[in-house]
Amino acid sequence: MTKIKNTKQLIACQQCDALYDTPVLKLGESAKCTRCGSILAERKVDSIERSFYWSLAGIMLSVPAILLPIMGVTLVGQYHHASLLDCILALIDNGFFMIATLVFLFTLAVPVVRLLGAFYITYSFKFNRLKPSLLHFFRAYHHLDNWAMLNVFMLGIVVSMYKLLDDTELSVNMGLLAFILWLICSTMASSALDQDYVWQELENKFVD
């Protein structure tokens, strides 16, 4: 075992544990692991600003995306439409409580909490209100990484439209537009956020 340098000068690949010297990156560059090809580190352009505005837009859009009807059907003179919230309520009416809870979590709670989290973090950075508690907050934020499924729900909307198109008259409502915009905002907000930068800044400020 060799003498260990300062751990800040080293970086390890998250996927295969290979050890490298910390690369010096310019804005917009990223470093890849030579062994497994996954991204080691990257510096995103204008990360805090972009993530701040995307998440702000996402928070504002989340209300119409959840409450406005996404689509409606007409059959023999009767009309009925449903929003994202109606899907969950319909499942509860049917007695499928587990599915209702999971659909609620994956398509409503997790995306909203993630947007609020990204907003809070970028807000604190933008206006210089850094607190030590942000360390714990950002750690908790990462627990939700895998569980937002707005994109899958979007595909679900498309598939069920095809299903309904055959034997009913289908109408598309404003909720669909709001939902698509919401999906774009939440994807952009989380992909624009530069995690390495946030961790580095928090560490420099509070740990040392």
């Binding site: 996404i70 059907v73 023999v76 009767q78 009925h80 439409h81 449903a82 899907c87 309520l89 309904l164």
Partner: peptide, 9 residues
């Protein structure tokens, strides 16, 4: 979930 909510005639 969507079909259950929408097709309710």
């Amino acid at each position: 979930a969507l079909l259950v909510a929408v097709v309710e005639l």
